[in-house]
Design a protein around this nucleic acid. Sequence first.
DNA 1: CGTGTCATTTTGTGATCACAAATTTAGTAT
DNA 2: ATACTAAATTTGTGATCACAAAATGACACG
Lengths: 235, 235
Amino acid sequence: MAVRRSALKSGPSKASTSTPSSSRGATRGQVDTAVRSGLLTGRFIPGKAVTIRGLAAELGVSPMPVREVLQRLAAENALEVKPNGRIQIPDMTRGRFDEVLKARLLLEPELAELALSSLNSSDVKALTAIDDDIDQRLGNGDAEAYMRLNHAFHFYIYRASGSKVLLPLIDSLWLQFAPFMRTVYGRVGTANLVDQHKEAIRAIEQQDGPALRAAITADITDGMGLLGKEILLKA
Amino acid sequence: MAVRRSALKSGPSKASTSTPSSSRGATRGQVDTAVRSGLLTGRFIPGKAVTIRGLAAELGVSPMPVREVLQRLAAENALEVKPNGRIQIPDMTRGRFDEVLKARLLLEPELAELALSSLNSSDVKALTAIDDDIDQRLGNGDAEAYMRLNHAFHFYIYRASGSKVLLPLIDSLWLQFAPFMRTVYGRVGTANLVDQHKEAIRAIEQQDGPALRAAITADITDGMGLLGKEILLKA
DNA sequence: CGTGTCATTTTGTGATCACAAATTTAGTAT
DNA sequence: ATACTAAATTTGTGATCACAAAATGACACG
């Protein structure tokens, strides 16, 4: 039997936080966290099929919780159910990309500003720690770690808003573009990636709303817009 | 046995369009359409529990497809899974309401303008027909019909954009506030509801983007913002 | 009349099964 | 070799079952 690359159960990925580790819906929570983190760190390749039994075997659970999780993620447009029932990672198109970019630019600066007043100096410290970690990993070319940390940085801010509506929408967006961005990093590497994290941190320190909006907007445009469009035009 | 009010299988609701009526996932599609339309027309009351077996019996299907549909809708934040596994219609809070309103104002005018160039004179005719229907129903106080038609009006426009990203996000938002708005209409009635549909239609006729944005924005603010805030403040 | 306790019922969850559709593989004929 | 066909496998779907947790109801006790 050939050694097959496993999309999950690799890396630390710390699947503990916010995961109901026991009691009601324990298995489903575990599966959900595993697949979500797999999508966000680019361990799933766009266009590749995802089978219920395959995932179930890989995670050592029965097909049932996997079925429900995949339906959930399909509802968030993180997965695509084809007319024949087959489930796969949607591949990115130019139209979809433009829409995700537009939606991100509309929602994320807004939520960041909404969270601003809830962020204090200890949060600044935590964000700085994440950003330092990112800078350190960028040189190594570890795209998976970069994606995980970049997600952690943004959502640390967004989560502080306590949002129950905007946050899930943005969650859905990240699940949609993350697998594609992974393929982008695979081509251009991570060495010369730029972000506006330090500007964002400074804006938070000074409680400067417009500056934070600008930093987030620029971060999205630079990190996703420029890179992605270049790749998509080549196709 | 007492006659229990059924949340579904009542009214015409025309569950045919866009429903996979046969082949793969037929039953699930039927259940999904039924519950979705039930939510959008306010046949589900916020705070009320929804049981898998109950819905399954009501729709005459096995619990399986219902389970998956409810998980889907929970992923879209149209339903809430409580820590004990119980599923219910989330009840509206002031914070949630403000967020939904904000998100609608950010996304819907944008998508309407995006759809503008795809709307032609035959679409104007269709929209006018829907709006006339609304005017006719408003006097009758038929809140359910109003909600269904208002949804039809907005999404006729949005769907024309061909959007695959923004449209699902807006879909999620409507599923979240619809059940609450139903309770609002139950208090204030539908007689003196106002909308900006005619202004929107005129903007489409003249292909006037800014005017369409303004009409949609005003429609959201008037129809949802004013009414909802008043009710929520009383609680 | 209120209150705690225990039995009964209901509910979600995970597992397994049967089935049909679709995919893949093998085999064969041209 | 190539194209077509048929068998074998894989896959999603719906149904049913067993189980534990939770909700509900009945009932006795204060």
